[in-house]
């Protein structure tokens, strides 16, 4: 565990806490993509199957459980909470799951380090995470006056990815046999997806304006 990895994990955790607090305080999920949240649920379920087979550390187990529980809480609120679900932008959140899930599944079957159910699902989760934010970014682009908390949520998620890249560089330099090309490439793709958003987020922050993304 290095400082970049810890900072990355904490940023990831903070992003989810920001989203939970926002939804709980405002009783609204306006601007939040249910599709992205459900894709993250698939990512976490497929990746964390090793909770049953492999103990890494208490930290690792607890964080996995928190990510699973918090994501399912968000989905539950957006689908079933009697006040929050009314505020969901159903008509705007139209990204098709299959455009992301199917290519990632095929890629995971072809490009993996071991052709076993666990490893293919794990690899699938790596590919899917790289693109799971896309429905959220599309929804943000369609939303005028993105509220601060939704903007901060996406900014924190992007920061978490950038910190993971620093973590990989650090591990590559300090651990002799540490290589994971599929994860690195997916992670770099995932971070690139955020660059456009980062540009407008920082611009709006510097100009003290409300964030809006050009269509």
């Amino acid at each position: 565990m290095n400082i970049f990895r810890l900072a990355g994990d904490m940023t990831h955790l903070l992003s989810i806490i920001v989203l939970l607090l926002k939804m709980n305080a405002t009783r609204s999920c306006r601007g939040v993509s249910l599709k992205t949240q459900e894709l993250y649920a698939v990512v976490f379920v497929c990746r964390y199957l090793d909770l049953f087979t492999n103990f890494i550390s208490l930290y690792n187990t607890v964080m996995k459980l928190i990510f699973l529980a918090s994501t399912f809480t968000i989905i539950y609120w957006m689908r079933f909470h009697k006040v929050i679900r009314v505020t969901y932008d159903r008509e705007q959140d139209t990204f098709r799951y299959q455009f992301l899930v199917l290519p990632c599944l095929v890629l995971a079957m072809v490009l993996n380090s071991e052709f076993t159910v666990m490893e293919v699902l794990w690899t699938f989760s790596i590919y899917l995470e790289a693109v799971a934010i896309l429905p959220q970014l599309v929804l943000l682009q369609r939303t005028n006056n993105i509220d601060n908390l939704t903007g901060n949520y996406v900014f924190l998620l992007g920061s978490y990815r950038a910190l993971y890249i620093l973590n990989w560089i650090y591990r590559f330099m300090t651990e002799p046999n540490y290589r994971q090309y599929l994860v690195w490439i997916s992670g770099i793709v995932q971070t690139i997806v955020y660059i456009d958003f980062f540009y407008y987020y920082i611009k709006s922050w510097r100009n003290n304006e409300k964030l809006s993304l050009p269509a």
Binding site: I56, N60, Y164, Y178, V183
Partner: peptide, 10 residues
């Protein structure tokens, strides 16, 4: 304690 692969990451 930690294995040298990405599987120890979250």
């Amino acid at each position: 304690e930690e294995e040298e692969s990405g599987h120890d990451e979250l």
